[in-house]
Design a binder for these strands. Structure first.
Lengths: 221, 221
DNA sequence: CGGGATCCCTTAGGATACTG
DNA sequence: CAGTATCCTAAGGGATCCCG
């Protein structure tokens, strides 16, 4: 990578040199959710060739962004403190990119990690702190996430086969959930148009959800 | 670019697909400072091959990030409102990358636009709003920037051959200015070690500058 | 002279297969 | 599970040339 310098003494350039290669920021995105093994990353990024994954992981370690941690059996990759500093970058990218998301392309997938980050980008601490604490279960594709909203804080957990009785609102949705978050459909319409299926809890809580998780649509060009 | 999809329905992925190609974010960085002609961009990014510049500009227009504006004579490229939304991304990248900047490599350059963004990344509105309004002239390489700090606002202007008498503090520096901003050298030491040469004004104002423009150094890996 | 287009070469990225 | 090895294609890099 040394030969692929941009030749400028500038923070933006330095950042792009460290994490601007193809796939690098998506690896960081997933690691931001938690430590992951090689195969987790591979599954979360199904289109990444394994040689690229392996190359990127080495480069990111070299850059001090990622650390390789041996475990009881197997090993995981995790962000260093320096790497965790990329959270602002990823969230800013996610917020900006959200506006440009149209309909999903044929074959587009959604992963637990990408949805976790998506909820974090859409989370509005200001709105949330004015609302009561709420727990949501979001069933998206073949997985579910539990969102704990407590004043200005959000925690997102992957929901395994655990009991799912304690959420105030549980719903199932798909990619079209984006339209609820962007405000293209109202909470009531989302239910009526079957963008969202309420599984349990008071459907009216979907309004609170939409207030808590919101990103404006793209301004006209 | 359509064939180079990452295959995920995710805001971060969408963003990376739109502006993640090599050089794209650096073009955006420069356009964030103001509208620029083709040759301005070329000069500000000396290592960019012209075919890449031209390709990227087309892609960015396609993406709705950049607009081509015919002028009295010549034409300029400018960010659309959507493109201006990348400011958060660029500033976050700049802040993060700043920590990883070591000494400049042989041949590294500094441009007016990159320095303008650098000052904006390092600017602390909180610190500034507690300090009196101040105007600084920073002479960096063969150019100079005027920094207007007024409570929590910063404006950065390129200083031409205009009179330079009205700044409270004018100084000349080089890449080592980074060390003042990171706190690796104190304002007093910066002057003593000739990191900064005060051209006019009260040298003590360099302390105020360092409070106003500050980014912490990188945490230990 | 600004604003590109073209050519050729080098290198990174992608697909797949294979191994400690 | 955690990667290499291989082969091929496509993108980037550098120089040059073109056109209004």
């Amino acid at each position: 990578m040394a030969a692929r310098n941009y030749g400028q003494y500038c923070g933006v350039v330095t950042a792009v040199e460290l994490v601007g290669e193809r796939w690098a920021l998506l690896i960081v995105r997933d690691l931001l959710v938690g430590a992951r093994r090689y195969s987790d990353l591979k599954n979360g990024l199904p289109r990444i060739p394994t040689n690229i994954l392996s190359t990127r992981l080495k480069e990111l370690q070299q850059a001090g962004v990622v650390r390789r941690v041996p475990l009881a059996h197997g090993l995981v990759y995790e962000l260093t403190e320096f790497g965790r500093g990329l959270e602002d970058v990823i969230l800013a990218l996610g917020r900006w990119g959200f506006q440009a998301m149209g309909e999903p392309d044929q074959g587009d997938i959604v992963t637990p990690d990408s949805m976790t980050i998506a909820f974090r980008t859409a989370f509005s601490p200001d709105a949330a702190s004015a609302l009561p604490s709420t727990v949501y279960d979001a069933h998206i594709a073949d997985f579910a996430l539990r969102l704990h909203v407590e004043s200005a804080d959000l925690r997102v957990l992957r929901l395994g086969t655990a009991p799912r009785g304690t959420a105030h609102l549980a719903f199932a949705s798909g990619p079209a959930l984006r339209k609820l978050i962007s405000g293209e459909v109202s909470p009531a319409d989302a239910i009526e148009q079957e963008v969202v299926h309420v599984l349990s809890g008071d459907p009216a809580l979907l309004g609170r959800f939409a207030e808590t998780f919101h990103l404006a649509a793209r301004p006209a060009a």
